[in-house]
């Protein structure tokens, strides 16, 4: 292929394609999946803040979201199940100049990786964690997840879920995260602004993105078409910035409360405390 045809091909590319490994498209995510808009919002936030590609790291765990690190043309690592945050902590402590992001699913971050999540919040490690919460284990076939709302059906709860679900913004807030927000993958513009705001802060920042999973979740919960869950999000969501995170539990009959809930300033990060200790010990 000569240079001219390459240039012509590039004219017919999506604006995101400079961040994508286009040869791997189309991706494997199902029609109507919320991971695509979430990743695009994250990329637009990177553009908005002006972070160069070389400084961006995307760490993902296991699940549908884990594929994202292979599709994007940024440095990334596809970790084992639940261990995205530990890997990212190590990376951030060794190379503090990088912008380290963990984008993973609810099963990865709150089921097997739950302990890592709360301890990273407690230590206030300088990370941006985005959780695409689709209420179910999507990739493994629709089993019950710790975020499945009460009463919903899945392959392992065919008569309805009897386990109350995690209220993940409250969990992050109570554990000490400095920035906590929740949006859906339909509220793409607000999500982009929220991610950009979080990127400019220091400390453990957590954004939950409610994301449609029409194939594994919707099909068993009377929302079978790709746009049914999107319509549910659009009609029942209420934006309440600064809401008390203990009141934002997701329940099927109640409205979904979205917004930027928590913003703490002045809390020292783990790296700063580590450097301070190092100076103190070495200077003695």
């Amino acid at each position: 292929m000569n240079e001219q045809t390459i240039a012509e091909d590039k004219l017919e590319l999506h604006p995101i394609d400079k961040w994508l490994r286009s040869e791997r498209m189309p991706h494997i995510w199902c029609p109507g999946c919320g991971i695509g808009p979430t990743l695009y919002a994250w990329i637009r936030a990177l553009d908005r803040v002006g972070i160069p590609k070389e400084k961006v790291v995307y760490v993902s765990g296991i699940g549908c979201c884990g594929r994202g690190s292979g599709y994007l043309d940024v440095d990334g690592f596809h970790t084992t199940h639940g261990r995205a945050i530990p890997f990212a902590i190590g990376l951030k402590l060794v190379k503090p100049e990088l912008c380290v992001n963990v984008i993973s699913g609810d099963g990865d971050l709150f089921s097997i990786g739950g302990n890592h999540f709360i301890h990273a919040c407690r230590r206030n490690v300088d990370l941006l964690v985005i959780c695409t919460n689709n209420f179910i284990y999507g990739m493994t076939g629709g089993q019950l997840a710790p975020t499945t709302p009460l009463g919903d059906r899945s392959t392992t709860s065919p008569y309805g879920n009897i386990e109350p679900s995690f209220n993940t913004p409250h969990l992050a807030d109570a554990s000490g995260a400095v920035y906590v927000a929740r949006w859906t993958s339909i509220h793409v513009r607000r999500l982009e602004k929220s991610i950009a705001e979080a990127m400019e802060m220091k400390g453990f920042r957590y954004i939950e993105v409610l994301s449609p999973c029409p194939v594994s979740y919707g099909r068993r919960n009377k929302l079978p078409e790709p746009d049914d869950i999107a319509e549910w999000f659009r009609q029942s969501s209420i934006i309440r910035n600064g809401a008390n995170t203990s009141e934002v539990q997701i329940e099927k009959e109640k409205p979904l409360i979205l917004g930027n809930f928590v913003k703490r300033v002045g809390k020292p990060t783990f790296y700063e405390l580590m450097k301070k200790l190092e100076e103190k010990v070495r200077g003695r």
Binding site: H14, P15, I16, D17, L20, M25, P26, H27, W29, P31, G32, C33, G34, I35, G36, P37, Y40, A41, R44, I186, V188, R189, E192
Partner: peptide, 13 residues
Amino acid sequence: GFCQVICPEYAIW
């Protein structure tokens, strides 16, 4: 540009 940002497949712009 809303179709562009909402498209899960990066197919429309």
